[in-house]
Simulated assay, not measured.
Amino acid sequence: MAYNESIAKRIREQLKLFPEDFTEKKMFGGLSFLYEGKMTVGIIKGDLAVRVVAAKMDSELAKPTVRPMDFTKRPMKEFIYVSEDGFKTEAQLLHYIDLGLEHAKSKLK
């Protein structure tokens, strides 16, 4: 499995702050955290993979630590990668978890 276990531990700790239940699944060669079967955030090597609602993609992609998720060599719709410099603090990590949860909930409506 190609993901950073210390990042997984940080995510697990942050997810305890949410009333929602999350599951873990191996995806994209890493580890993903799902809400109601929908991916929220994941880890691929040392990067976060985050689902983002379309309306927030441009503002997230404008950040220097964020890039399109190009797992298939083409940008994937509503997915971003965040380098480790982009989630050094727990507040930054929580921001990306919130974005991913928002996306998952938007797909359940």
Rank of each mutant, 00 (worst) to 15 (best):
L93T: 02
H95C: 08
I80A: 04
M69H: 13
E36P: 00
L99E: 13
K63I: 00
K9D: 08
V53N: 12
I44T: 14
E84P: 14
T40K: 06
E78I: 03
A62P: 08
G29R: 03
F28I: 14
E84H: 12
K105D: 01
T89H: 04
R51K: 15
Q14G: 09
R67M: 10
V82A: 02
L61R: 10
Y96I: 06
M1Q: 12
M57N: 06
A55V: 13
L31A: 07
K26H: 14
L17N: 11
R74S: 14
K38R: 15
A2K: 12
I44N: 14
M57P: 04
S32Y: 12
K25V: 13
R74M: 13
K73P: 04
A104T: 10
S83H: 13
L17M: 08
N4H: 05
P19W: 05
A2P: 06
G37S: 09
G42P: 02
P64E: 07
V50R: 02
A8F: 06
A104K: 04
K88P: 00
T72W: 11
A2L: 13
D98R: 14
Y3F: 06
S6Y: 03
D98V: 13
Y3S: 02
G37L: 10
R74L: 11
K109S: 14
E102N: 10
M39D: 08
R51D: 09
P75Q: 05
V53C: 12
R10E: 05
L99H: 08
I7W: 01
S6R: 04
E90S: 11
M57Q: 05
S32R: 04
I43F: 01
E60W: 07
G100H: 01
V82D: 01
G46Q: 14
A49F: 03
A55I: 12
T72G: 07
L93C: 00
T40P: 02
L93S: 01
A91C: 03
F87C: 00
I80H: 03
K9G: 00
M69Q: 08
L108N: 11
L108D: 11
K88C: 03
K16N: 08
F33V: 09
G30T: 07
V52T: 07
F33T: 09
Q92H: 03
L61S: 09
A49V: 15
M27P: 04
S106P: 00
K9N: 07
E90F: 05
K56G: 07
E13P: 00
F87N: 01
